Every structure is written in structure tokens, then in C-alpha cells.
Computed example of a mutant assay.
Amino acid sequence: MYSVFSSCTCLCLHFLLLCLQVQVLAAEENVDFRIHVENQTRARDDVSRKQLRLYQLYSRTSGKHIQVLGRRISAKGEDGDKYAQLLVETDTFGSQVRIKGKETDFYLCMNRKGKLVGKPDGTSKECVFIEKVLENNYTALMSAKYTGWYVGFTKKGRPRKGPKTRENQQDVHFMKRYPKGQAELQKPFKYTTVTKRTRRIRPTHPG
């Protein structure tokens, strides 16, 4: 009788352990890693080498390019315009960038009122933007400090205030373009080709 009771107790314990393991596995499978990835993406990357790119940002609404004219910002630049050439530096593992006018050395920033301005010092978080590649292959630039506020322009190339912008508006859609005549200066990233490992030749020693 005691052995039967003992066997039943063991079976119950094994069953409870099995249920607990199933619950743990289910919980692990339902873990949402997007929050972790987003936090890591937004974290400052002070270790890696900063990636610097040169390109123009073509505005979908104005049909022109963003210009950093010192403290004034517009989207009226023609292709190849010196004020439309932007130096873009990655600030994190990939999505956060700082944008500086090559000609003026002023940074594209968004102040607390949502106004786009140029600043000579780009260390403030107001000068950091999150690049978001949209389904239509356009790029949107959201303020890293003021969530939900985007860089945007009217049809006349005038800046829109951040609080009046939305991700689905054409006003905030941009296309990256190389400056006119300078595409050949951009060095594409080259992958290292890995070939099959060859047999290692052992050095022969003189007898």
C-alpha cells in the first residue's frame, strides 16, 4: 500500500514539474523582443567607429532637396546645390543620425516648439533623428527627443512644425540621393568573400 501511494506521489510531482516546464517554455516563446531591440537601437554607441555618409534628402512634397542655410532650413534645393549636400553621421547602432550641412557646418535640429532650425553645435539631443524606412521605400526622420514629431515640409519647401506632422503624411517622406556628379565618390560596402578552406601545407623541415 505504501509503495502504491509513493508511486502516485512521484507521478503527481513529475506531472507538476512537466506543467511548470511547459508554462516556462510558453512564456519564453511569447516574449516580445521588439522592446529590447528598440532600446538597444536607441542606445548611444560610443565604441564603434562613426559612419559618415554624404547625400541629399529629396522632399516628396516640394520636389526639391533639404537645405541647411545656417540657422534657416528649407526644402528648396536643386540637385547638386551646395547647401543641399548633407553629412549624415550615425549616432547609435544604426537608426539614429545627426545631419549637418556640408557647406555651413550647421546641424539640422528641432527645438521644443517643433520648429526646424540650424545649430552650430550638434551635441544636443534636439539634433538627433531616428531614421524610419517606410513601406513605400521613403525615409522619415523622427525627433529622438520629441517622439512623434517628424521633419516635414510644405509644397513650397517651408518647414512644418513637429506637432503637426504624422508618419503617414507625404510632407515627412524623403528619398536619399547622391549629390549630382558625386555618386562615383561613394564607396560601397564590400563583403569579404569566404572560400572553401584549403588544405594546410605543413612546412618541411630539413632532414
Results as ranks from 00 to 15, higher is better:
W149F: 03
K145T: 15
G122P: 00
I99A: 11
C127D: 12
G122A: 05
F174V: 11
V97R: 10
V97P: 11
V133T: 03
K113S: 15
C109L: 06
P159N: 09
C127E: 13
T104Q: 03
D105K: 02
A144P: 01
N137L: 08
K155P: 04
G122Q: 09
V117R: 15
K125F: 06
F106D: 04
V97L: 14
K125A: 11
S143D: 12
T154D: 05
K164F: 15
G118P: 01
M175G: 14
R166I: 11
R112I: 04
Q169D: 15
V151H: 06
R98C: 15
T154N: 07
A140T: 15
A144N: 11
N111H: 08
L141Q: 08
Q170K: 09
K145A: 12
G162K: 11
G152A: 15
F93I: 15
L134K: 14
E167W: 02
R112W: 09
E131G: 08
S95M: 08
V133M: 01
Y138N: 15
V151N: 01
I99Y: 05
Y146M: 04
W149Q: 12
S124V: 10
R158E: 08
C127P: 15
N137S: 14
E135S: 10
G101L: 07
G152N: 04
G94V: 10
C109E: 13
S124C: 08
E131A: 09
F93A: 10
N136S: 11
P159S: 14
T92W: 03
Y138C: 08
C109Y: 03
G101M: 06
N111T: 10
N111I: 13
M175Y: 12
T104I: 06
T139E: 11
K164H: 09
T165C: 04
K119I: 01
Y150P: 00
K102G: 00
V172I: 13
Y146S: 12
M110V: 12
T139S: 06
Y138V: 05
V151Y: 01
W149T: 02
T154L: 05
T92K: 09
M175E: 12
G118C: 03
R98M: 11
F174L: 04
F106H: 00
F153H: 13
F174S: 10
E131Y: 03
E135W: 03
K102H: 00
K102S: 00
G94N: 10
Q96D: 05
F93H: 07
G152S: 06
P163Y: 15
F129H: 14
